[in-house]
Structure formats: C-alpha cells, structure tokens
Design a binder for these strands. Sequence first.
DNA 1: CCTACCGATCGGTAGG
DNA 2: CCTACCGATCGGTAGG
Lengths: 207, 207
Amino acid sequence: MSESALLASPKAEGQDSRSKILAVALKLFTVKGYEGASIDEIRMGAGFKSKASLYTHFKSKDELSQALTSGILGQIEAVIIDGNDIAEPLMRFTMVIRGLIKWASLHPTECIFHMMQEQKKLVSEVEGKELSNTELMLLDIVQQLRAQYPVRPIATDALLSMIFVILAQTLLDGAAFGNISFDEKIEQIVSICFGVVFNEAVPVPKI
Amino acid sequence: MSESALLASPKAEGQDSRSKILAVALKLFTVKGYEGASIDEIRMGAGFKSKASLYTHFKSKDELSQALTSGILGQIEAVIIDGNDIAEPLMRFTMVIRGLIKWASLHPTECIFHMMQEQKKLVSEVEGKELSNTELMLLDIVQQLRAQYPVRPIATDALLSMIFVILAQTLLDGAAFGNISFDEKIEQIVSICFGVVFNEAVPVPKI
DNA sequence: CCTACCGATCGGTAGG
DNA sequence: CCTACCGATCGGTAGG
C-alpha cells in the first residue's frame, strides 16, 4: 500500500476531518481545559501538518468549542424528548434520569465536558439569560413533579445542576463503582438523584 | 488621608504582599482556570509593577497554586478535627458535614477552587496515590458510619467527592437558595448529603 | 490542505 | 521590589 493511501482515505475526507477534529478537541478540552489545550495540539491529534488546515473547518478556537457544545446539547435533547410520551410526572422524570445516566455512560467525555462548561458559566457569573431547549424541557419536567411530589424548596435549576454534577462525578470516579453491576450502578445513581430532588423518601417507580 | 497611606499599609508589608498575591491568585485561578489566569494578571491584581516581584514570594506558577491548595486543605482539616471529640458515628458525621457547609459558606471561592482541582486530578487520571490527612480522616468517618448505618454500596471516596461537589455546586448556584433562610439552607444541604450517602432514609440527628 | 509567517502574550530571569 | 529582557508558544492568517 502506498504512503498516500495511508495518509488519505478515498471518500468523505472532509466530513472525517471535521469529526476527527471535534473528537480530539473534546478530549483535550476536557482533560486540559479550554485554555490549557492549544490549537496546535488539536491539529496534531487530528493528523494535520498545519493549523491552517484546521481553520478551514472552524473559524476560531471558540467556534470549535461551541460546535462541541451544541452537539452535546442535541444529544441530551434527544434523550429528553424520548420521555415526552409519558404523562405521569414521576414516571417521566425517572425515565429521563435513567436515559441521561445511560447517555452519560456511553458518552462520558461529553458529559464531563458539558458539566465543566456549565460550572465555568456559573463561576464567571455570565448570567447567560437565554435558556437552551434542553434546560427549558428539564425545568418543565421537574416543575410538574413539584405539584404532586415532595420536591425540595430549592430553585429547580439548582436541583438540575446538582443532578448533572452528580452524573459527571460518577463518571470521574468510575473505578469506584467497579464492584457492582452496570444495572445496579444505574439504580444507585437514580436513587441518589431522588435523594437530591425530594425532601422525603420517594420510592423509585419500576418500569 | 494621603494616597500612599491608601496604597501601602505601614507594617508587615512582606506578609501582606504574600497574602495579597494568594487572594488574587485564588480568585483568578477559580474564575479563569490555572492556564487561563496569567502570572501577569495576578501581578497586576496584587499591585506590583513587575512579575519579578511576585517571583520573590513564589518560585513558580505551580508553587503558587500548591500554596493555595495546602492552605485550603489546612482549613478543611481544622473543621474535621473539630468533630473528633464526638464518638457516635452518625453524630460525628453530621457535625462534620455541618462544619464543612459553614466553612464553604464563609469561603466559597476556596471551596470551588478545591473542587475544581479535585476534578482536574480525576479527569487527567493522575492517580495521586498519596491521600492527604484530610481525606484519610473523612474516609475513616464514613467507614465507621458504614458499620452501623445503611451507607450505599459505593466506594467511600466516591461518596465523599459527591458531597464536595454538591457543596461547591450550592455555592455556584448561590442565588437559587436566596429565598430560604441561612439555617434552612444548611438543613437542606445536610439533608441532600444524607440522601447521597444513605441507601434508605436516615433522619438527620438534632444537636 | 500546506508553507511560512504575524503580533501578542506566555512563564520566567539577570541584575540591580 | 523594579527595569529590561529571554525563548517559547499562543491564536490566527496570507497566499498558494
């Protein structure tokens, strides 16, 4: 096989490059932080000889980060929409929580990146007033829960950010859950989320 | 009052400079991240005209960050030691949790900085085997709790990191708790920690 | 997608 | 505690 065949795959080169860049950037941004990960490192990881190549796919470092964010929000939104056909608030909430845990297990880096970005927004007091679709839908779910169940007297968005932070932390502490099965792990995390959201003990409904 | 009197306090200038640097670095590291905050910004915030002055107090950027860390660990250790004279595991655990919440309320930036550092360690898989005194004491407290109460079948250090992450998140979401009193806020956070640590409902003991 | 380059800023230091 | 400076790297771009 010639060298050029190894360096360049025959079809859909453009799309591959773009997703390669995104994958490498996700990993590096998550591990080293936005400022800690340089464009040059990302360029290397994606297999380019020049930064200029990277800039044919993304206008700036910031745009690259935003592309990651919107992709992740889209994934989370899909999980939430999946629970839309369930009317009963507690069942719907449980379904979405389970869905988020499964998504996070399959996409740990995405989940951790997302949590770190949310923390960054809060700590710099940006107060980005505009709520994403994702946030609006989650707020609505917990709001409906509040009418019938003993949800804590704490702002709904604070409850939600605690859930995400716990989700991400279980991924960061991955090894700590190693001794129990995947299903048991999910049940434990769901149960923890219930402990965070409710003031009194509410049993987790069975599917 | 003259301008010089405002700019320079008469005594203990050296100590003041050091703590001024630490205070500014804590704030900037927390808000912008270690890589995002530059030595030159810290130097400006501390009121120096030159970076060289800063380097008379700290050998490197990393040493500055480590000085912050050890200071914070010392503060947390003091809180834990405060609960050492209580023998009953649940009472001791509750006392320490309350102490940590109060400390975090008085030192929010320190708490958030500490949590972010812990997350950074986990995400880069450093596996810093050496546990600090603080961690050892906390592990011991929860370990003793495990013998008599329904602590979750999850590694103790994972439970502890979840507690810290929730503590920090309540500070980041500060405004979300604005509508309830300080004492009620503490009780809610203690209750959330119980929900995280225990598998079944355990009432929070009264003092 | 590359070569070659830009000004700005980075952490850090020599010498006083 | 300062002036003045270091090499390295930063994000980004002109031109092909």
